[in-house]
């Protein structure tokens, strides 16, 4: 097992290197640079600016410099936000995004598993149908619509919760719920479907026939076997949600890192593009690794890393 984990860690590093290299190539191939502006700058000024950020050097050299700094844990300085290091930007914003994301994920996972289980047990009855309608609404109304509606009703009209901002717990409620909407719908629907799958299996019927109380059947037998698809999706979903949502953070004026993923690209802020991408990718790769480990734990028959079948 340890050997497997060691091997996987090495592969993770290679994957990460591949992602950062590809991103470096991608960002240098799209039109525009950090200094493209509506009022074209004089040549001399542009040259000065490029020299200052090392962008005057040939690309391969810039790449080597970047990679060298990266190995030493230095993500460089933002070009747009002068004098702010990318390390600081991520370190300041990540706890915010992570708190928000964690609240949303907890809500989505627990409520989703519960609702999905209920829907499966009550298949084709009223509660199943209403949960489906609820999930569909969650899917078809994107959070850029939900969020302003929340602000308008809970914040402005009923004055129950703050409209925007960050700092107190009450300011996290609306964004967490807005962020949880889609994952909640996804978890509910998936859980329902795989529960149905498992409920039809012989061993469940046996367990039921044996007279085991339904709760026991559900928690000990069914849930464990039905949860694999949910786990599969929760991995990358967690990585995505914990590293911040551009839309929700923007609407609720939350100082998280979600905006860096979009704005760094809009601004062609190269160091931030790289930093944000590497950060997210590392998270994602790690989550997918944990998901694989979880498979083996949930169903010991699943063996990864062994010889091909």
């Amino acid at each position: 097992m340890l050997r497997y984990i060691g091997k996987r860690l090495l592969i993770m590093l290679i994957t990460l290197w591949l992602i950062s290299t590809l991103t470096f190539i991608l960002m240098n191939s799209i039109p525009g640079d950090p200094f493209t502006s509506e009022k074209k700058l004089p040549e001399s000024t542009l040259e000065n600016l490029k020299a200052q950020y090392g962008l005057d050097k040939p690309l391969p050299m810039q790449y080597v410099v970047y990679m060298n700094n990266l190995i030493h844990g230095d993500l460089g300085f933002s070009i747009k936000n002068v004098n702010r290091s990318v390390n600081d930007m991520l370190a300041d914003g990540f706890p915010v995004s992570a708190q928000l994301g964690a609240q949303a994920m907890i809500l989505a996972i627990f409520a989703g598993i519960l609702m999905g289980t209920v829907a499966a047990l009550r298949q084709n009855r009223m509660s199943d149908y209403s949960l489906m309608v609820l999930a569909v609404i969650g899917l078809s109304i994107p959070n850029f619509v939900i969020a302003p509606l929340f602000q308008k009703y809970f914040g402005l009209n009923w004055e129950l919760l703050p409209i925007a901002g960050w700092g107190n717990f009450d300011q996290t409620i609306l964004p967490s719920i807005a962020l949880a909407f889609t994952p909640l719908a996804l978890v509910t629907r998936l859980m329902r479907s795989s529960m149905l799958e498992v409920l039809g299996q012989d061993y469940i019927r046996t367990a039921r026939a044996k007279g085991l109380p339904p709760i026991r059947v559900i928690s000990f037998h069914t849930l464990r076997n039905a949860i694999i698809p949910v786990i599969t999706l929760i991995g990358p979903l967690t990585a995505a949600i914990l590293t911040g949502s551009f839309v929700v953070e923007k609407i609720f004026s939350i100082p998280g890192i979600g905006k860096y993923f979009v704005e760094s690209i809009i601004n062609r802020d190269y160091p931030v593009i790289m930093g944000a991408t590497i950060f997210f990718s590392a998270f994602l790769i790690l989550m997918n690794f944990l998901v694989d480990l979880a498979y083996g734990y949930i169903d010991p028959r699943i063996k990864l890393g062994k010889k091909e079948a």
Binding site: G155, L156, E159, I163, I251, S253
Partner: peptide
């Protein structure tokens, strides 16, 4: 406040 809509609601409130 990045979103005009948010700033406007804050103003209204």
């Amino acid at each position: 406040n990045q979103e005009e809509q948010t700033a406007y609601q804050l103003f209204k409130s």
